Structure formats: C-alpha cells, structure tokens
Simulated scan of single mutants.
Amino acid sequence: MQRLIPASERDDWRAALAPLGALDPSYLPEYHLAYALRVAHSRPLLWHFSSDGQHFLYPFLLTPVLLGTVATPYFDITSVYGYTGPIATTADSRFLAAAWAAFDGYAAQQRIIAEFVRFSPFNRNQGFAHPQASVLANRTLAASQLPASDPPASHQALLQSLGAKTRNMLRKAERAGLVARELPLPQYLPQFRALYDATMERHQAPPFFRYDDAYWQQLLALGAQGLRLFGTFGRCTGGRMTAAAMAIVHGASGLYHLGASGDEGAGPGAGNLSLFAMSCALMDSGVGFLNLTGGRTAAPDDPLLLFKRSNANGTAVFHIGQRIVDPPAYNAVARQWQQLRGAPPEAGKVVFWRF
C-alpha cells in the first residue's frame, strides 16, 4: 500500500508515524505546517509505503520549480528546516527496494526533478536514503545524552557532564540572582517574541530568521507537551525576561528550536541558565536526546556552535542528501536557468533555484 498524507490531516499523519517509535520532533505534522508557511507554494506531505507489516515513511515539502518569476512544469522535494528524511521499520534490502521503486513511480508522475534531504541525528536515518542519493556529513551539532531522570541527582550528573567554564557561568548567574523556569504558552509568547526579535536585530540576522504571526500560531498547535519555553529572570533587570530557550519535543527526543538573550546588561550566564533549565526539565519529562543544533556556518570554530557545545555534553553529526531525480528534465531546467541568468547554476547545489 502507498498513500500521501497532507500535514493538515494531523491525526492520520501521527498515526502513520506511530509504528516507527521514537522520532525526531521535526517529523511532526504541526512543525511541517509551520515551516511550509516559509516556503512559497509548498505543500507538506508524508509519503507512506507499507508491505507485510513493515512501513516506510518520507515527509517532505513538495514545491513547484520556479526560476525567479518563470514557471516550469516541474517540482522539487525538500526536507523542512530541521531533521527528518526517509525512515523505515526495517532495513531489509528487498523491502527498501520496493519502497523506493514505488516512490520513484510517484515522483515520475508528479514530475519531481530533484530532492534535498536533511537527516536526523537522533534517528540516524541516512542509511535509508535513496540508492542514487549523494549523502554527505555536513557539520557537527551540539547534543546532550541526558541521564535517566532522578532529581536532584540527575540534575547534578548533567551539571558535572558540562565543561568547567559553563559550570562557572551557571554559578555566576545564581550569585547574580538570576532564576530560570519553564513558562506557560501562549501567555509568555509575546515576551519571548519581543526578546527574540531584539536578539535578531542586534545580530543583524537575515530575514529567514524572522517569524510572522502565522508561524507562531501554527507552532502553538504542538501543544503544551510539544512546544516548551524556558526563561531567565533577575533582580538586576527589574524582573523582565533576559534570556530564553524554546524546544520542540516528541517522546524521548528534544530539539532546541529558538533562543534569545538580552544585551550585556542581562546578567552573567543568563543564556547558560535558560539552556540548563531546559535540559533538566526535558530530562525530567523523559527526553534522553537533546539536539542543541549547530552554528551559523559549518565551521568547527563557529562561535554559536562553540556556545552550544559548551552547554551540551556531547556532539552529533548532521548529514544531508541530494539527488537528481529526473536527469533529462533537470538538465533542461539548468539550461533554461543559464539562458535567463547568463551563468550556469552554482556547482554542488542540486536545488539551485532556491538555495
């Protein structure tokens, strides 16, 4: 059996995910609906193949191929900005061959010419990539393996697993009177948004990292257990929020989604304290793997990555996959691009019309 499930059919999507067990939070339909708002004309879909009690799932955004304002008859598929990709209940080669053969039939009918996949470091599913896909290790991520919850011992164990500099910053934050706690949503969303927007302005972040009302409202559909917010407050700031961390959670996996912090007057270690409070609370609710994600670049000395690594007790490797699904059609689009732009597409970027 094979079927396509739109993310708007959330119950069916979640039911299809169930046989896979523990999955990265990025697989959730609510997150796909939120991210699809940021990719014009895209449709968030879950392709489901099943046979003899085994299941193959592939979530993606189906998007028309546009060369600027020039339309083409083709489509591409890309992962959401997160960590998903194809995954199955078995690694049996015959089952996977049948699943991919069925998918290639769908891709031909839909006129899909290229795919770009972001794999999950939690599920380590890059081995389920299409046989013709090029899979590469893209960058290092900060990640924590959280001990089984048994507070306060487990909190102390997590603290001791962090670096000496981070532990020192946490002590400074406590001495300065800073306190971090979990915050109910949507009540605290306006405060978080204001702090987040100010953080992006201060760092001159590109428009991609700014979010509109529709995105936030869709994210709230994850519910109280799926979307969690932690904030740091202090006497020295008049009780206002000085740092915050937001996570998306699904079962045993947590994903640090967004963070924000005030200027230098926020107090020492405010950001560290938010992340530690988030790690402890998620651990207490059964999360065993927390992906704090990577830096602004793939460089191993990226400052943001180094900060995240200092607040995690380990690392993970992020893989990407690319595939030209229909070479003749793809080459025709590349020639059309060169005619329109006067230059060939950038080498190494399969979905060159968007990324």
Rank of each mutant, 00 (worst) to 15 (best):
A247D: 14
T84F: 04
A148V: 14
L306F: 05
F208P: 03
A108R: 14
A7C: 08
P19E: 00
F103V: 03
A22R: 15
R240W: 04
Y330Q: 06
Y196G: 11
Q145K: 05
R181D: 08
S279T: 11
A142G: 06
L304E: 05
G234Q: 10
N138C: 08
L141H: 10
D52M: 07
F49Q: 13
Q2R: 15
F233H: 06
V80F: 11
H319L: 12
Q109C: 05
R139E: 08
V70N: 10
V179I: 12
H48T: 12
A244P: 12
R181N: 07
Y211E: 02
D92M: 08
Q2P: 11
A270C: 07
G267D: 05
T293Y: 11
L146W: 00
R94V: 11
V179S: 09
A312H: 09
N331Q: 13
H41M: 14
P206Y: 02
A143E: 03
P131S: 02
A99E: 13
L220I: 13
L292H: 11
L189H: 09
F355H: 07
Q2E: 15
L96F: 05
I248P: 11
G105V: 06
A133W: 11
A102N: 13
I248F: 14
A97I: 02
A329H: 06
D76E: 15
A299K: 05
A36N: 06
G267Q: 05
A15M: 11
R296L: 12
T237G: 12
E182R: 14
R10E: 15
R235M: 03
A7Y: 02
S50D: 12
A153N: 13
L273H: 02
F276Y: 15
S134I: 07
W47H: 05
A36M: 06
A214G: 09
V287R: 01
A266H: 01
Q336D: 05
N313M: 04
S26R: 04
L229A: 03
L306S: 11
N138R: 12
R323N: 03
T69N: 15
H203W: 04
N313A: 07
F192W: 04
A137E: 07
A343S: 09
R228S: 01
L17R: 01
R167S: 01
L195K: 08
G53N: 02
F355R: 04
M283H: 01
F233R: 07
L220K: 06
L62C: 10
V317D: 11
L183S: 04
F276W: 15
Y188D: 14
W337M: 04
E346F: 02
L255M: 12
H130G: 09
S51W: 10
R3Q: 14
L46G: 01
R228V: 13
H319N: 13
A198I: 01
G21V: 01
T297I: 00
G259F: 07
N291Y: 03
P73Y: 03
T315C: 14
Y31A: 10
A277Q: 14
L185E: 07
E182I: 12
I320V: 15
L45H: 03
P207N: 05
E115R: 12
L178V: 07
Y215C: 11
